[in-house]
Amino acid sequence: MELIGSLITLFGAIFLFLGALGIFRMPDLYNRMQAGTKATTLGSILFLFGLAIGCYRGLCFWRVLILIIFIIFTNPISSHALARAAHHIGVKLTERSVKDDLKKDSQKGDRK
């Protein structure tokens, strides 16, 4: 049982590492945020779940459940707030980008 928990924890740590590598390597802010949000969410969920399996006591499990639900709800919201603020102050997309509908629409709104 403890072996299964430790393997789940190891997978979670690998996902955390991939998210951090994505934040380090990606070319612009939005792509960094994509890698950062998704990989750290699943990585921390798996990491904490594996710890809860290894720790036997019931109290431990319920606390970890609260933490997991909390992370699932708050992590996308904070990254959404950051992306919105970044686009509002005009952080540019990378040159490899294809299109930007939001910029077009907000400029149209200014002209009215």
């Binding site: 390597r25 939005y30 994509q34 990989a39 294809v98």
Partner: peptide, 20 residues
């Protein structure tokens, strides 16, 4: 989505084609 992120990050060419 996590497997997708892993595939993109580990590729040395960074296969992205982003846009809004």
């Amino acid at each position: 989505s996590n497997l997708d992120v892993a595939r993109r990050v580990l590729d040395p060419k960074l296969p992205i084609n982003p846009g809004i």
